[in-house]
Design a protein around this nucleic acid. Structure first.
Lengths: 236, 236
DNA sequence: TATTTTTTCTGGTAAATACCAAACCAACTT
DNA sequence: AAGTTGGTTTGGTATTTACCAGAAAAAATA
């Protein structure tokens, strides 16, 4: 199992700080030669480090050292920008698409609304220090937010809700599971199809208990770290 | 990219219910032949399904269809057994080790205690329907729980705390991130080294705000699904 | 200097092959 | 009936080879 040794060797170099976060590895063929092994075995070692979140790759671009993950607290309303800035990172968001459509199946299931309810769907790509780390897809119940498409919601939907509609998030139901990146989402994240991902699904209610939107967040799995404090209720 | 087609083909059979949860796939060589491809490409397809949580493998034993994940709520005190039973699953726990030791580095960091503080460490293996799904490692501050080693805590530590020491969990700080299974932990879970995992770290306080223990839970990544409801506090 | 085109490099995919060791099963022994 | 042994199957690991397509770099052009 020489791939284990290669893995450890690379790992040591990362931990020792010889390879800085975000820096690119030499070409696979060169690395394989350096470790006196085949390209396939070298890729095996890198893949293990990838599933451990130590390194990541960009499709046909190479392998990189993973930056430290962003702490993500699902129980507060900090938006992406705020979270990133608090952690000393540089956030950026891009709008990938936005449209007013009848609620699709998967979102209808999350929202618990009838089929054909009008929703405003939009997709955003989130960057941290110019690395694409997440694609977020929002489904907003259209009737509660007239002309939402004209507002500037790209950076923060939370902010738009509050300023333009006097709506505050008050309760959120969330699911978090591992998944893999496929198709358009993988492409937007410059990831190869099948890369490991964290999928965060949230369903949000406003201060009146009204269900207002849901979102799906596909994160590169090494880019976040779910973190929270809970006050426990004893059941029995 | 024929591995994508193979993947979809297998996936369809799973979704159609032709392959029931927990059932074993034919041997790799036979499957490869059936799909008229090489074993390597077949393994590529299965690996993708694995990272998506649709299938899992047991080391040198073969590939299996993943059962549906257990919903795990980090914000309540339901123990493993209770969670499993509520979901209609059959739980079982095995004690892998238990010892009274000076707090090791990683746990000291989580607990925020001085080095050499005595802790009671024990490892348990959790099964769902006889499938090993998680290894949990607990570090309990020994001075608060004299003779803990004599109690029957294997099924539920929570229960022992409550009945024998009148201690209730009241606040927990948790971190969740993806990781990979290695060494002993992988072996206990019958997983191959490097299999994807969910790592849940928790630090717990009792009803008096006293820090009492922490635990590390290594889950097979397809076996859980973090799920919770949060009441939000607006900051600004 | 800025833009476009061409070339080179590099990662992604795929096959064929080989050997090892653990798991499994069946036959045998006690 | 229970335990041991030995052969077979099967997944894990590793090498070699090949070709493709996208990305990056270099060269040519406007």
């Amino acid at each position: 199992m020489q791939y284990l040794k290669i893995m450890e060797s690379i790992n040591e170099q990362i931990e020792a700080g010889l390879l800085t976060p975000g820096s690119k590895f030499p070409a696979e063929r060169k690395l394989a030669e350096a470790f006196d092994t085949s390209r396939i075995t070298l890729r095996e070692a890198l893949s293990l480090l990838e599933s451990d979140g130590k390194v990541f790759r960009e499709d046909r671009r190479g392998w990189f050292v993973s930056p430290s993950p962003l702490s993500y607290n699902p129980t507060n309303t900090d938006n992406f920008k705020t979270m990133a800035l608090k952690a000393g990172r540089e956030p950026r968001s891009e709008l990938l698409s936005s449209q007013l459509i009848p609620c699709p199946r998967n979102a209808a299931k999350l929202l618990g609304v009838e089929a054909f309810t009008k929703v405003f769907k939009f997709e955003r790509l989130r960057f941290l220090d110019e690395r694409p780390v997440a694609v977020t897809i929002n489904y907003v119940i259209a009737e509660y937010f007239p002309r939402l498409e004209e507002k500037n919601f790209i950076e923060s939907l939370t902010h738009t809700y509050k300023e333009d509609y006097k709506v505050l998030y008050s309760q959120t139901r969330y699911h978090i599971r591992t998944s893999s990146l496929q198709g358009d989402i993988a492409q937007a994240l410059r990831a190869t199809s099948g890369s490991p991902a964290m999928l965060v699904e949230r369903v949000n209610h406003d201060q009146n208990g009204r269900l207002i939107d849901c979102d799906l967040e596909y994160w590169r799995h090494d880019a976040i770290n779910i973190q929270s404090v809970a006050t426990l209720t004893q059941e029995d």
